[in-house]
Simulated assay, not measured.
Amino acid sequence: MNVPDNRFTDKTVIVTGAGSGIGRATAIAFANAGAHVLGVGRREAALLETAREHPSVATFVADICADGAPEAVIEEAARWWGRVDVLVNNAGAAAIVPLGDVTGARITELFALNVTAPSLLARAALPYLREVRGSIVNVSSTFGHRPLPGGSHYAASKSAIEMLTRSWALELAGDDVRVNAVAPGPTESEALAAAGLPDEVVEKIKQDEAAQIPLGRRGTPEEIADWIVHLADPASTWLTGQILTVDGGLELT
């Protein structure tokens, strides 16, 4: 018998990058747990596909790197439901750019999305999170603490997210606002294709990654989403500042 999951009943959750992959799975998982969910992303059609999966998912189209966008996202959630209990900083980009090809503009663009935007979203959400003793869950990567030749600046941006997670956890502990992160290993998503790689290269990378993972396969978005929900669970009252790596054992190799 399926037991109803009501851990997040009447709570408001914001999920960025909710149009596909881990973001879509996370928005649906929180909705299944009773939350009101604001799914945020740049692609309206993709967000609407997510929303069709559950009636408790509302959508907000925004480029979170744009001036004023982080504040607009938080204000939209507050307008709908009057509160913000959880912020999931999932939106981000992977970038395979060898050092010899990197440009200042590419580095700036990558850090704007992977580091600056999550920081500004957290700042804008903070008054609401303090009021309800809420939580932030950042999405890092196994490459936030594992070298990635050819993708060093992507790895550095995720390493920054992990240090932000730990630092915010200490900074906000006095307000009972918890901050944790999940660090997924290679997961089925649109990230590789979105990085501009040809289909045959994407497929080769996927095969190579699966061969390196002790459990023998790439992860699914739903597997990552489950842990994001667990980290944000109001019952996890004594868990903060943690980086949970979910990568099929890749970190051990």
Rank of each mutant, 00 (worst) to 15 (best):
F143H: 12
I213Y: 01
V37R: 00
V139Y: 00
L87D: 07
K204H: 10
G248Y: 02
E53R: 07
V177A: 10
W80V: 11
W80K: 13
D85F: 00
A117C: 02
R146D: 07
E200F: 09
L113G: 03
L87Y: 02
A122I: 05
A169G: 04
M1A: 15
I224A: 01
D208W: 08
R42I: 09
P184S: 10
A45M: 08
I22T: 06
E223L: 07
D5K: 01
F143C: 08
G241L: 04
A156R: 06
S20D: 08
G100L: 13
V177F: 10
A117W: 11
R133T: 12
S167I: 14
W227E: 14
E44D: 15
A51L: 04
E49Y: 12
T116N: 11
R52Q: 13
Q207C: 13
I14T: 02
T237P: 13
A160P: 04
E109G: 12
R24N: 11
G249R: 00
A125I: 11
N2G: 12
R24F: 10
G104P: 11
T220S: 13
V61N: 09
G39W: 03
L99Q: 12
A46N: 06
G39R: 03
S140Y: 00
C65T: 15
W238C: 14
E44N: 13
E222N: 08
G23C: 03
L239P: 03
Q242H: 06
D175C: 09
A183Y: 08
L121W: 00
F143E: 14
A31V: 05
L244I: 04
T16F: 06
T116F: 11
V88C: 06
V37T: 00
D247F: 09
A194T: 12
N114H: 03
L99N: 14
R123N: 09
H230G: 13
G68P: 14
M163H: 15
A125G: 11
I136F: 04
W80F: 15
M163C: 10
T59V: 07
Y154G: 00
Q207A: 15
A29R: 01
L38A: 03
A18S: 06
V57R: 00
P184Q: 02
N90M: 04
H230W: 13
G92Q: 06
L110Q: 05
L164C: 12
A169M: 06
D63K: 05
P221R: 03
H54A: 02
F30H: 07
W80R: 11
G134Q: 05
S189M: 14
G92N: 06
A181E: 01
E71W: 03
A210F: 09
D10M: 05
A181F: 06
G19N: 10
V246A: 07
E209G: 08
A194I: 05
R123S: 10
D199A: 13
G216M: 09
P147N: 03
A210K: 08
A183L: 03
L148I: 08
E44Q: 14
P149D: 04
I136K: 04
Q207T: 14
L87T: 06
E190F: 07
I107Q: 09
R178E: 09
D176N: 09
L244Q: 06
S141E: 01
V202K: 01
A18P: 14
A105C: 12
E222L: 02
L113C: 01
L172R: 04
A51Q: 05
T165S: 01
A125S: 15
A72N: 15
